[in-house]
Design a protein around this nucleic acid. Structure first.
Length: 896
RNA sequence: GGACAAUUAGCUCAGUUGGUUAGAGCGUUCGCUUCACACGCGAGAGGUCACUGGUUCGAAUCCAGUAUUGUCCACCA
């Protein structure tokens, strides 16, 4: 018997991930190998570090996270197996505004209270109660994905060490003049009572009225007549002939609160096509207007306050909301005959708060800014902006895919100063104190502001009420997690910071390329004078099967935890890795996940077959195939699969190194299912030789290793079945293609053309199927093999055995014709299948075959008779065509 | 308005620097309780590679334009 059918330890037919995953994860965690300090490596081992983009604590694990975790875990496991000192560092983000909003909403819904009812301290306690729960939830869900994160280094953007780091950063930046306070126009949300960064503003298509108003010598169009109270200029295009003579002149304009003076200015940003070509300028309440006003030295007049109401300088309109004021002012203007006409349903884009949808009110406000253009001596007198741009241009930082470099640079080059203060309670409170007692002020007139890591001594100091933009702390993520500032003394890196910074890869979604990536680069330059990471890998979004964003309201979301429960983590990971290329969105459906579950099960059964057929003593040894010992024992199929396996190792290694994870996954699937399961395992049932066991085992070893970064759980499980728990796959050594070169070279002198055997077998199966030969009908075959006689003769057992239903195979010395039988040709090999034939079907099949060949021959003949082709094409291409032509002609002739 | 992608089989996608008869998975058709696996096995069908022009001996691949879809950036009063 070839097979040992009595299995001492029967494995179930179906792999049940739910039974193993948690146990395996615990085993990994207990092993300590997630921690780079506990990998047994030499001092000189290279490091490979990824800092996990910290998920917001308001989130539950969704497929986007799952995708990120799968990709990063793949890179980390691959490098770990390659012998790198790998660190993958976990953490969470406090997401200041988002979190505060969630808790505020909850508070209002459950208790009908606002944060002001509770007060700062009590409210923050609520936030912390909330986040402690959600934080542990998301971290535990992260474990479910099989992520090999070093939990001993877990960080939070708002924990003690990070708070220290953030304060130091702020103080350092302030002292170097990179952070400053200033009055600028900001995006103000009257509901949140907070500034919003440019990227926190959303634009909504809306319909509004366009008012054409009589404006002194002008008629001009505006959507916001109420801002007329703050107008200080009228702007026109410099080359607009209509207004050319008016530029620079001052005019008195009649208004609802009496006449006021404006200056006519020229600015090329004015669109002559819009309205009458002249626009009113309200410098205090419009970014564009402000810019124009500054250039022309036009004063600013604020008329709207932080509640979104008209200020005291607005006479009878004071205290009204802008909406009320607009109505009232338009009515009054109408009375005064100042309204020319009104366009209804004017379409414009309204800027709204990304949190609450409230229309944004641009207004001047005192805020803290990071000055991105401030030159810094330490950085060769470059600004943060310049340093960050240069890093990308010089390719110290590389983007994958490359096209995002352009997007990054474009954004960077247009970067304005970054407003970092937010009027919220939750987050890093700005480490600035103001002196309120006038006594002190008068003594030391300049010391009325204190910027430091701790509150200043003495009475009367009050801390700034505002908190920092959440990106300020997450911008420091690569080094605040590695012990900055403690590990950075006198400009020298120590400890983790020295070992792991700069990191190798930042893997994140392209949607936060500008929000986060750019800020990390600037912050790292400021704090350390170096880049935070060498490569930026950007993944796409996870969409549903129809390419739509998953959302709760649409109900098209897939919960990764449900899928894990149903199909196993490995299947979920594969469905996110395969079919997903850098920078492109990936579509995921339950069917896709189920498909990969099937593959996982296939792998399970392949392993079950191999394991159950081998003597246990073999299972424990990493079998060493010495080529010299098995020179004469290898069959054609053996050499073929070893060659394929060797190629696979080479390809998978380079694929992963080139971030082609999807391609690697597909190759692994193809090799495992097609070459190994469908062909080689079937062959192994018919061929017996002493080293078959070793080969199968060795190949299984290799594919488990190569699949491990993709599907860590099942591969670890099978590994433990093979090795009886003696070692762990996650720490195994990545396979080496060179291991096979000696063996493969031994096949010298033998023709390695297993593909031909496969072709013959497939052709026979095809002919049988097309002729509707009963599956169980045993038939007789005559083969004339010509020059391939030796090769075919050596493989008769396989040709008979691999589901061709041939019971007798006769190799002919000379060509013969068998009329009314199935006639198959493969190149110059002719096969006759005798018995059970439907002549009609066979004629049809032959006809089809002939047509196909005739077409191919005609095309190739045409190509080869084209002189331009034969003159210009490389020789190998021409020879290939000639060979094909000969082969097809032979086949056609044989079929006549 | 600007930029960047995408457009290949019914669906979701591969397709390396131009060069065998353009591939895969799912779905579909036919057959199969073949002793690892029906979450399976075997055999098929299915594509003018969005359109138009150009470069070339040769284009899914390079160039130009058009159309459609998507994303990002800017923002207009």
């Amino acid at each position: 018997m070839i097979y040992n059918m009595t299995k001492s330890k029967e494995l179930p037919k179906t792999y049940e991930p739910q039974k193993h995953e948690d146990k395996i994860y615990k085993k990994w965690e207990d092993s300590g190998f997630f921690n780079p300090d506990k990998l047994n490596l030499s001092e000189t081992a290279k490091t490979y570090t990824i800092i996990l983009p910290p998920p917001n604590i308001t989130d539950k694990l969704h497929l986007g996270h799952a995708s990120m975790l799968a990709i990063e875990d793949l890179m980390i496991r691959f490098k770990r197996m390659q012998g790198y000192r790998t660190l993958w560092l976990p953490g969470t983000d406090h997401a200041a505004i988002a979190t505060q909003n969630v808790v505020e909403k909850k508070l209002f819904k459950e208790e009908g209270k606002t944060r002001h009812d509770l007060g700062r301290e009590k409210f923050l306690e609520r936030v912390w109660d909330f986040l402690r729960v959600t934080q542990s939830t998301i971290l535990n869900q992260t474990r479910k994905m099989g992520a090999s994160l070093d939990w001993s280094r877990t960080a939070f953007t708002l924990d003690g060490p990070r708070e220290k780091a953030v304060k130091k950063m702020f103080v350092d930046m302030y002292n170097e003049g990179v952070i400053a306070r200033g009055k600028r126009i900001v995006n103000w949300c009257p509901r949140c009572h907070s500034t919003l960064a440019d990227d926190e503003v959303e634009y909504k298509e809306s319909k509004t009225r366009l008012y054409w108003i009589k404006y002194g010598p002008f008629v001009l169009a505006t959507t916001r007549p109420e801002t007329k109270l703050g107008d200080t200029a009228v702007a026109v295009h410099p080359s607009d002939k209509r207004y050319k003579d008016m530029i620079g002149k001052k005019y008195m304009i009649p208004g609802v609160l009496g006449d006021f003076e404006i200056t006519v200015i020229a600015d090329r940003h004015v669109d002559m096509e819009f309205g009458s070509g002249a626009i009113k300028v309200t410098p205090a309440h419009s970014f564009a207007d402000n810019e124009m006003a500054q250039k022309n030295d036009i004063p600013m007049k604020q008329i709207i306050n932080e509640d979104g109401c008209m200020m005291d300088n607005c006479g009878k309109y004071a205290g009204m909301t802008t909406k009320e004021a607009r109505k009232k002012i338009v009515a009054d203007m109408e009375k005064m005959g100042l309204i020319d006409h009104i366009d209804e349903n004017y379409e414009n884009k309204l800027s709204v708060c990304y949190r609450c949808d409230t229309p944004i009110e641009p207004l001047p406000s005192k805020q803290w800014f990071v000055l991105v253009d401030k030159k810094i001596k330490r950085l060769g007198n470059k600004s943060l902006k310049e340093a960050a741009i240069e890093a990308a241009q010089k390719h110290d930082i590389n983007f994958i895919p490359e096209r995002f470099e352009k997007r990054y640079l474009h954004w960077m080059e247009n970067l304005h100063d970054w407003c970092i203060s937010r009027q919220i309670w939750f987050g890093h409170r700005i480490p600035v104190w103001y002196q309120t007692k006038s006594k002190v002020k008068s003594q030391k007139s300049k010391v009325d502001i204190y910027v430091g890591e701790k509150a200043p001594e003495g009475a009367g100091w009050v801390q700034d009420e505002d908190s920092l933009d959440t990106w300020f702390s997450s911008g420091m993520w690569t080094f605040s997690t590695l012990g900055w500032p403690e590990n950075f003394l006198d400009g020298k890196k120590n400890g983790d910071l020295k070992k792991f910074h700069p990191t190798q890869v930042l893997e994140t979604g392209y949607e936060i390329l500008t929000l986060w990536v750019s800020r990390m680069i600037m912050m790292s330059f400021f704090a350390l004078g170096e880049i935070p990471f060498e490569n930026v890998y950007l993944h796409g979004m996870v969409l549903d099967a129809h390419g739509k964003k998953m959302s709760k309201s649409k109900g098209n979301g897939i919960d990764p935890l449900d899928m894990i429960k149903k199909y196993g983590t490995d299947a979920v990971r594969l469905s996110l890795l395969i079919g997903s290329t850098p920078g492109n969105d990936v579509r995921v459906s339950e069917e896709k996940i189920a498909g990969y579950r099937n593959f996982i099960n296939k792998l399970w059964n392949i392993s079950r077959f191999i394991i159950s057929n081998f003597e246990s003593r073999k299972l424990n040894t990493e079998c060493q195939m010495s080529g010299l010992d098995c020179r004469d024992k290898l069959t054609l199929a053996d050499v073929w699969i070893l060659q394929k396996n060797s190629d696979l190792i080479k390809n998978i290694t380079s694929d992963i190194e080139e971030y082609k994870f999807s391609q690697a996954g597909e190759r692994l699937r193809e090799f495992t299912w097609e070459y190994l399961a469908d062909w080689y395992l079937e062959v192994s049932k018919f061929e017996k030789n002493d080293i078959k066991n070793d080969i199968l085992l060795k190949i299984l070893n290799d594919i488990l290793k190569m699949l491990h970064p993709f599907t860590p759980f099942i591969t670890e499980k099978i590994w433990s079945e093979m090795k009886k728990g003696k070692s762990m796959l996650m720490a195994a050594k990545w396979p080496n293609a060179e291991d096979y070169s000696e063996i493969i070279n031994l096949s010298n002198g033998h023709e390695i053309n297993f593909d031909l055997i496969m072709d013959i077998i497939k052709s026979i199966r095809n002919a049988r199927s097309e002729n509707r030969v009963e599956p169980n009908k045993r038939i007789k075959a005559y083969i004339y093999a010509g020059t391939k006689k030796e090769l075919i003769t050596s493989q008769t057992e396989l040709i008979k055995g691999l589901r061709t239903g041939i019971e007798e195979l006769i190799i002919l010395d000379h060509k013969e014709k068998y009329a009314n039988e199935i006639h198959v040709t493969v190149g110059d090999i002719e096969i006759y299948l005798i018995g059970a034939i439907d002549m009609e079907k066979e004629k049809e099949r032959i006809k089809k075959e002939k047509e196909n060949l005739t077409k191919l021959i005609a095309n190739t003949e045409k190509k080869l008779s084209n002189k331009a082709f034969t003159d210009n094409a490389p020789e190998e291409i021409i020879n290939q065509q000639k060979e094909n032509l000969a082969k097809w002609r032979q086949e056609l002739e044989n079929l006549q």
